[in-house]
Design a protein around this nucleic acid. Sequence first.
DNA 1: ACTACTCTCGCCCTCTGCTGGATAATC
DNA 2: AGATTATCCAGCAGAGGGCGAGAGTAGT
Length: 638
Amino acid sequence: MAGTEISVPPEQFTKSKEPELITEKALEEEEEGVCRARAHPSSEELEAESTHGALQAKIPGGELELLLAIREEGEKHILTLQTVHLTSEDAELQDLAPQRQEEVQAGSGLQSWVWRGDGSQQSPHPCVTISIQEEVYLLQEVEVMQLHVLEEKVTGASEGSRCAVSLAESCGSIKEEEQLLAEGGSSEETEGQFSLLEVRPGDEGRVEIVLTISPLNIEKPALGQAHAEEANATESQKKTKEVKRTFHCDICTFTSSRISSLNRHMKTHTNEKPYTCHLCLKAFRTVTILRNHINTHTGTRPYKCDDCDMAFVTSGERARHRRYKHTHEKPFKCSMCAYASVEASKLKRHIRSHTGERPFQCHLCSYAGKDAYKVKRHMRTHSGERPYECHVCHARFTQRGTMKIHVLQKHGENVRKYQCPHCDTVTARKSDLRVHLLKLHTYEAAEMKCRYCSAVFHERYALIQHQKTHKNEKRFKCEHCSYACKQKRHMAVHIRTHTGEKPFACLSCNRRFQQKQLLNVHVKKYHDTTFVPTVYRCPRCGKGYSRLNNMQRHLKKCGSRREKPTTSEKGRRTKMRKPTIPKEAAEEDEAAAEEASLVSGEQYPGGLVPIDFGEATAGGEDPDEDMTCEMILAMMEK
DNA sequence: ACTACTCTCGCCCTCTGCTGGATAATC
DNA sequence: AGATTATCCAGCAGAGGGCGAGAGTAGT
């Protein structure tokens, strides 16, 4: 049969994920000197005790059950593992050999074990998993994360995964020890890793194994000294030793079946780096690393990609490159979304976007990033660093991407634009188009009224477009005549021609005018001593007139044919208007009307003078809508 | 001990989207 | 002239791709 694994769902190992809890509990009890026997509890009791430092796990849908409790006897911590119990309903067991099934059903499912941990706080991560692999049941200390992996492998456990292989290998020694257990013997690991005291039948056909966790006052070997497990005392233990040795690092959790591996590993704790690069004097632990390093100096990249020009120092780099660029094989798949990645680290990073975990904290503010680079990039906001410079205008930027967009949009050609699908608006950035759509093309539940009419809209863009249609129409119509204009103030002036109202009075002589412009002209002529009136002179005889039309009439009588105006004069004429005054104004005050033609004291070619709009032009209004011009033209039309 | 291999961490990159200040256009 | 609004633009962060290189593993 193919290897079958059943792993305990990690959520059922809550206690095992809190190793401090168990250990502290044990310590606490030790301090109290109270021995709480948990060696032979009933299932119910154990279940209840699981909240007090014992550990219990069940396989959903089946009867696989693991109970683990810790108690103290003197200086010893007793770890009790109480059997695994499986029923035939468990689908995962369908492939088991009949004999094994019987055994399982008989409740003797706990076939082997490995427990490691000294019971002190220096072993902070004891947790237990159980699997079925080639008819061997295994309890092994694993990391919480591994538990999760193991659980995932339940569904596809038939394939020999890496994890499964390692477990199976571990089972070799376990089987041997299992035999010892069956004989009722005991083995004891030195250095306080673990000890086996006894195996005895439990209730209801279960097997109970009692392990002793050694005293806390374990004497640690000196730093850097390899620590190999060795059985001692009993022959059975020696027998176990002959089967397989495990070499443990005393500084970390590293274990290996080979002393050479452990010795090599120990160098990682000593910073011993005997291999030095002759080019940069950098030191390395192994000659292989040094050789790869030297290749980076020499540019030696022996592993060339078959599909492109890339070459790499190691075959692993090439293989990874091919996954990224050519095969697109992504073995690491997210269980929560469709994301898959080439590398496990990428999946790990991706998972943080689901969990919200931010392990990388900025030491200057509350920001925390999901990876180290985010924090590094973020630090520029504190330092003010702007490493990226525009090669054209030398503007500096905090991120390369920002600089690239700047160069593209400020100095680039054929820059891509983003066209709004609903109007003519074009934006340089997609994000700005989004803002545009949000502000102008989003449906608003509240009605938006036109300021000029009763029309209502639910989209801001439609409202604006509609209001523009009001812009050029002469919305203000005179009640007394056909006059119409665009601006309300123009209409107010016009209305005076019907009412006869003259609101502008001369302070010097009390004469009154309908328009301020007329008052200004009056003041200049009669009350301003510095005022020099415009004189229209006949180009033939030089005779001067205060009014243009009078001079033109004279010109005809003068007998001379009038010269054609020059091109430059034509141009000027298009820009200048005759200083015509409204007919109504001329009628009300002939003198003022004549004076209006003499606004400026300067002489202009062709007898033209610029219009003095006075205050009428103030305010920056559109010249086409200027009050005086429009009024004058309208009045002349009349 | 050597070697090939995998795993893992870290770095840098691009692309993307959001935000808010500056500026221009409009009223 | 001032208020309002639309657009421009840089700053900033999220997410993910790709690679360099050291550490660890296992076969010979």
